[in-house]
Amino acid sequence: KLETFPLDVLVNTAAEDLPRGVDPSRKENHLSDEDFKAVFGMTRSAFANLPLWKQQNLKKEKGLF
């Protein structure tokens, strides 16, 4: 399991300012399950079932792209 970080560490943070080991294209993977659901309004599995373009739009909207 990946290390999780608080939302404010990941949202609207440039790649070079992210904690070590965080993939800038997969910031959402480093949210706790609770934060993930609070941000996206759905579970990880529901998010994973969305088309890629919709996932990317949601990530942009939430500052996690």
Score class of each variant (00 low, 15 high):
residue 32 S to T: 11
residue 21 G to F: 09
residue 56 Q to T: 13
residue 11 V to N: 05
residue 9 V to C: 11
residue 47 F to Y: 06
residue 50 L to F: 05
residue 58 L to A: 04
residue 3 E to Q: 12
residue 7 L to W: 08
residue 52 L to V: 13
residue 30 H to S: 08
residue 49 N to P: 01
residue 41 G to V: 02
residue 3 E to G: 08
residue 33 D to I: 05
residue 61 E to Y: 06
residue 9 V to S: 08
residue 14 A to V: 09
residue 60 K to G: 05
residue 24 P to M: 06
residue 4 T to L: 12
residue 56 Q to I: 14
residue 39 V to C: 11
residue 36 F to A: 00
residue 62 K to D: 01
residue 25 S to F: 13
residue 23 D to N: 10
residue 27 K to I: 15
residue 8 D to R: 08
residue 47 F to M: 01
residue 8 D to P: 06
residue 37 K to H: 14
residue 59 K to M: 06
residue 22 V to E: 02
residue 18 L to C: 06
residue 51 P to R: 01
residue 11 V to F: 07
residue 38 A to W: 10
residue 56 Q to A: 14
residue 49 N to Q: 13
residue 49 N to I: 12
residue 59 K to Q: 03
residue 18 L to S: 05
residue 50 L to D: 00
residue 6 P to A: 06
residue 7 L to K: 05
residue 47 F to G: 00
residue 20 R to Y: 10
residue 30 H to F: 10
residue 47 F to S: 00
residue 56 Q to Y: 10
residue 24 P to K: 07
residue 54 K to R: 10
residue 4 T to A: 08
residue 51 P to G: 04
residue 9 V to Q: 10
residue 19 P to E: 04
residue 34 E to P: 08
residue 14 A to G: 09
residue 6 P to R: 01
residue 36 F to Q: 00
residue 12 N to T: 07
residue 60 K to E: 13
residue 47 F to T: 10
residue 27 K to L: 15
residue 54 K to H: 12
residue 8 D to C: 13
residue 13 T to N: 08
residue 48 A to G: 12
residue 23 D to H: 06
residue 24 P to N: 05
residue 59 K to N: 02
residue 42 M to R: 01
residue 32 S to R: 07
residue 12 N to L: 08
residue 48 A to W: 09
residue 8 D to W: 15
residue 1 K to M: 12
residue 26 R to K: 11
residue 39 V to S: 04
residue 15 A to P: 15
residue 32 S to L: 03
residue 52 L to S: 09
residue 44 R to K: 13
residue 21 G to E: 09
residue 25 S to L: 15
residue 7 L to N: 04
residue 41 G to Q: 14
residue 24 P to V: 08
residue 63 G to R: 04
residue 57 N to K: 14
residue 44 R to Q: 07
residue 2 L to G: 09
residue 38 A to I: 13
residue 15 A to Q: 10
residue 28 E to K: 01
residue 35 D to C: 07
residue 64 L to C: 07
residue 56 Q to P: 00
residue 25 S to I: 10
residue 45 S to Y: 12
residue 8 D to N: 12
residue 39 V to N: 03
residue 52 L to E: 14
residue 37 K to P: 01
residue 9 V to R: 12
residue 59 K to H: 02
residue 49 N to L: 14
residue 65 F to Y: 13
residue 65 F to W: 14
residue 23 D to G: 03
residue 26 R to F: 12
residue 61 E to A: 11
residue 4 T to H: 09
residue 23 D to M: 05
residue 27 K to V: 15
residue 12 N to W: 05
residue 60 K to F: 11
residue 34 E to I: 10
residue 16 E to C: 14
residue 16 E to W: 01
residue 26 R to H: 15
residue 50 L to S: 01
